[in-house]
Design a binder for these strands. Sequence first.
DNA 1: TTGAAAGCGCTAACAG
DNA 2: CTGTTAGCGCTTTCAA
Lengths: 340, 340
Amino acid sequence: MNIRDVAKRAGVSVATVSRVLNHPDQVTEKTRDHIHEIMKEMDYTPNWFARGLNLNRTGLIALMVPNIINPIYTEIAKGVEEIAHSKGYSTFLCNSEDSIKKESDYIEMLTHRKVDGLIFIGGHLDPTLMERIEKNQLPAVMIGSIQGDWKFSQVYSDFFDGAQKATGHLIESGIKNIAHISGDLRFIESQEKLKGYKAALENTGLTWEDQWIISGDDSIEGGYLAAKRLLRLDKIPEAIFVANDWMAFGAMDAIKTEGLKIPNDIAIVGFDNNRMSALMDPKLTTIQLPAYRMGLTACRLLFDEIESGAENRTSIYLPVTLKVRQSCGHVSGIKTIFGE
Amino acid sequence: MNIRDVAKRAGVSVATVSRVLNHPDQVTEKTRDHIHEIMKEMDYTPNWFARGLNLNRTGLIALMVPNIINPIYTEIAKGVEEIAHSKGYSTFLCNSEDSIKKESDYIEMLTHRKVDGLIFIGGHLDPTLMERIEKNQLPAVMIGSIQGDWKFSQVYSDFFDGAQKATGHLIESGIKNIAHISGDLRFIESQEKLKGYKAALENTGLTWEDQWIISGDDSIEGGYLAAKRLLRLDKIPEAIFVANDWMAFGAMDAIKTEGLKIPNDIAIVGFDNNRMSALMDPKLTTIQLPAYRMGLTACRLLFDEIESGAENRTSIYLPVTLKVRQSCGHVSGIKTIFGE
DNA sequence: TTGAAAGCGCTAACAG
DNA sequence: CTGTTAGCGCTTTCAA
């Protein structure tokens, strides 16, 4: 059943039916209502391919995330989805699971499918893929940890700054031996955090040992294992700055399993303010990343570009803030209730 | 740039190029290689709409989940995605956020877009929508809490049974006053769990008070608030069976905030075996739902149907099991390490 | 094995 | 305001 059937049944031309669908104001109210009725009667829905073939528009944007299992990304997704939905667009959520192969499969597919736009987490994406996106003229927005010189609009935070704040907070509490469980160091995000950690120490005349910096692979299990290794060192650190809350959950478990107390024996500061962080015991002190707002903002930028058709690159900076709770051992965190 | 350009450049007809794409065996190896080369040279990718318009196939399946923020659904999504990806299909993740409006928007969109198949969480979907799916002849698989009489293949678990096991476990520990924080009771899943809870009590000659059954709205915050209300009753229950781990996280926080000890003052059993459950303090005793496997299985069933073209409804039952950790107060849970 | 040509269902330019 | 018609890029039948 197609537009011709509807036209026939309504006693009009296909053009008129098409107009009812695309430019309702160009049709008499009477004919319009009539046709609407017929369409409902016949339960007609326009063929999406035929439509796309003509308009070269899909009403679809894609969001590529490194790992959907980490709630911080679903938070971003919620923000993106909200804006997209309000614009009548649907969001295609692509989960690369930290695999470059999968990422590239997705980009391949997305360019085939011609989504109208793409939002991705910068620094997780292979540069070759980014070129491919550029070449395909796909409107794209990058959510990043740093401002870069790309042909994309950007929403970025300063992860270096965040890491410095996190580490600095521990230092202010009088702690000197601070270890770092890093994320996957292939990603800029993790590199920035590592730099921030080191900078905070250097700035206060402190130092670190190489064995105190361990990659946690951006997974809970990785965080667990990294913490275990730290606890087996001759000189156990007094605190750990963990590059994200997700890994921190694993690290906390490892520490407790060893019978140590957080924050008394070992203090912990995370990064992200994951939804679960306020529910851990002790509640996790962390750097608040405005994930939801990043999603909203990125999606707005994307639509600016889609709707204007122009390549108006914009960069928007969203600051991160320290969220003091209990795991850092700082007094002001102790009375925290339900994370607020 | 389109198939005609490629044909021209290769000195063949469009038909031949098309055949290279769709029926390579019908073309001489020589021409085939030549055309492949040209395509690579020109960086040609076939237009997806034009293709779909002819084939009426998209290479896309949809997965509709009630709330992506709850990790149990991302677990299912991973299973689905894995199979789909191995078949060269992409997964369109639709997040209805427990809203019937959004669900219906998505179904509307999906039928327009003609995804090749749909997997959804049964009992969360409005019956009207399910009819709509049926009418659209969309191959669909339902992941459910109960076997129903639908025109879909099903992967289901017995949530009644699970709830009974959970409650029963508390009863075996000698606890008599057991409250229940339920999910959103519009959903069959939540109803089943409520029934199982009541059945377990009745079977052992115990009873419940109406004020001990509170809906937690399937959110962390809802779980928190529900627990708070339970703690303000004159007669505080000794244990709570929470309909899912997600709400249990909130409930645990509420209990701790009140200065009570889990499990000593109040025991808790959840449902799902959410990834975070083994990291809570105390580690959460729960009913293990094989979410990942449900995703895998559902997707396999879906492809059975897509590939055969037939409507071969199958129902597959996956059992749930009790996972004893610490929050129930049962001795055998105490030495649990890292959730295993 | 290859080519010519007829659609797939829709949109929009153009003519009335 | 409405109708006629030429595509959009591809697949596939039919003929060579």
